[in-house]
């Protein structure tokens, strides 16, 4: 995040205007229309790189249940990274391919791709995630600000926080129950040899 990228607004605005083609059904096992591997290969070329066949194998998998959400988010992300700012730099092919093939998989399993277009918070989250993976921060933000905002908007982090909160609540409940149970059974307490 050491390098300044485009403004956040430019990219979130681009996401909001994502064409319907990029939200169409990805082709998996002869179902769907969009060949995701071809879209990715095209983007990588525009970014100044060249995807090997093996790089694209991940987008040719045929497990509908596992791959559909990933492929759908990959298409939306391809639209985002097709912004002229990235294309003009001609140096983001490698991190973009890494992001598309692995970096968005977990997020895709949590949130539907359409939401990254329709929902302002999700748009910001995806933009910030992409910028981080490309080593960039939004124009006009310091590294610390960008990191704080990334953490605040990060669904994965939020899920972790929520999960940790739930675990803590569960632990508190157990402790409270044990305290009450053992306080009732005062005589069970270990033999303390003096009073206080």
């Amino acid at each position: 995040m050491t390098t300044e990228g485009p403004t956040l607004e430019t990219l979130t605005h681009r996401l909001a205007e994502c064409p319907a083609d990029f939200l169409d059904e990805p082709r998996i096992e002869r179902k769907g229309r969009v060949d995701v591997a071809a879209v990715v290969a095209d983007l990588v070329r525009q970014l100044g790189g060249r995807a090997q066949r093996s790089d694209l194998d991940v987008f040719r998998k045929s497990d509908l249940m596992k791959c559909r959400s990933h492929f759908r988010l990959a298409l939306v992300t391809c639209w985002l990274l097709g912004d002229s700012w990235f294309i003009g730099k001609k140096r983001f092919a490698v991190p973009a391919l890494r992001l598309l093939s692995a970096g968005i998989v977990e997020l895709a399993s949590l949130i539907h791709a359409e939401k990254f277009v329709s929902d302002p918070d999700s748009r910001e989250e995806l933009v910030r995630l992409c910028l981080r993976e490309l080593g960039l921060r939004p124009a006009g933000e310091s590294e610390a600000q960008a990191l704080d905002r990334l953490e605040a908007t990060n669904t994965l982090e939020r899920r972790k926080v929520i999960a940790a909160t739930r675990t803590a609540q569960e632990r508190t409940r157990k402790v409270r129950e044990e305290l009450a149970r053992k306080a009732r059974a005062e005589a069970e307490a270990a033999a303390k040899i003096s009073r206080e």
Binding site: V175, R176, L179, K182, A183, E186, E188, K192
Partner: peptide, 19 residues
């Protein structure tokens, strides 16, 4: 309940009431 650390073994916890 908030005083008991996350890693404290509740099975071995005792509870006293102060004198």
């Amino acid at each position: 309940e908030h005083m008991v650390p996350d890693d404290a073994d509740l099975k071995r916890m005792l509870v006293y009431r102060t004198a």
